[in-house]
Design a protein around this nucleic acid. Structure first.
Lengths: 188, 188
DNA sequence: AGTTTATACTCAACTTGTTGACTATGTCAA
DNA sequence: TTGACATAGTCAACAAGTTGAGTATAAACT
């Protein structure tokens, strides 16, 4: 659903090839929208089919040819319509939470390993986002565009921080004797 | 993938019908794993096919017949094996973030509406989780089981709180003049 | 000379999740 | 008595996401 609308949003700014879009997804929205290049190319074909975008073949020297996609009037209308539709929160599905739920059946050491591994993943991601944040904060009078992008980055930062805190909370809890740890948890 | 393992986790405790599982998904894991009844039934058939679980038809009076599923030895081995596998964070895909990214193309009032609507959804969910939390905290010497379940609930609480805070941050930002709001944001 | 990296795109098979319709029986309240 | 709700399940079509392989060219490094 929204993959096409994310693409339309990028195309609103300027024309992109599928490859360009792939990179944009990587560096601009990876904190809240993952898309593989296969998915992007497939979606572009579909969108071209229904007239939301149009392609122009561009021959390049030293590089393979590419298809440059532009948003059409129809596409722009669709996007503007979509903006006003209510959006529902994406359901979460997290393996790690299933493992914590099943904590009684898992050896303590495995569970601790799972949580510390996960914690460091989120820490690494957070560091990466923090760097981007610092880069943004150094920009004087950023364009509105950049501000909105920054606001989405803030979501990424909060999200990763929240994960780290939760991992720490669980690690603290399971490293203590189970029946004595309840009070400290609920103080947090 | 993990839908089957979540089911196995429930079946580790005791036998369940598909219908029971549906309710368990609703009330115990809805904060981190959504599954429709169609999905659950389909998964159960598949799992029975590969021998992770086995079914027993139970005739009931006053109610339709049901199939009671039990975990098999194979299923238990599979689950224990899965516990030790590394798990990778689930990629997020959030429509609302796409809309914030596209903020420049959206009327301020629509964007504010989107954010306030979303905020109240998360607030309602948070209230619901808080009630569950209070119910747990009143239990004296809870079983380990309940403690692990509580720890997953904590994730839900943190998650919803984080969303609310982020919505507030964005709302504050966009209600201010765009170029003057950067400093207050980065203080948070 | 051979390998990796970047650019640029395509196809197919598969798994997972969603939507909507459908069959049944029994209870409870308006 | 009609309609809603809880119980208990099935089927089919579709949409979205994943995995893996493949085609090509050119630069850069080892």
């Amino acid at each position: 659903m929204a993959l096409s609308h994310t693409i339309l949003t990028f195309l609103s700014e300027c024309a992109h090839s599928g490859y360009d879009l792939g990179k944009r997804f990587e560096d601009a929205v990876s904190c809240f929208w993952k898309a593989s290049h296969q998915q992007i190319y497939r979606e572009l074909s579909k969108m071209e089919g229904i007239g939301w975008i149009e392609a122009e073949a561009i021959a390049q020297q030293g590089k393979p040819d590419k298809k440059l996609y532009r948003i059409t009037e129809t596409g722009r209308n669709e996007l503007e319509h979509w903006f006003e539709l209510p959006c529902i929160p994406t359901p979460t599905r997290e393996d790690l939470l299933v493992k914590v739920l099943a904590g009684s059946y898992i050896s303590r050491s495995v569970l601790i390993q799972q949580l510390t591994d996960r914690r460091s993943l989120h820490q690494a991601q957070l560091n990466c986002y923090r760097e981007k944040e610092n880069a943004f904060l150094e920009v004087e009078n950023p364009e509105e565009h950049l501000i909105f992008r920054y606001l989405t980055l803030r979501r990424g930062i909060r999200y990763e921080s929240e994960w780290i805190d939760w991992c720490d909370e669980v690690l603290t809890a399971i490293k203590t004797k189970p029946t004595t740890l309840i009070k400290p948890i609920h103080l947090s």
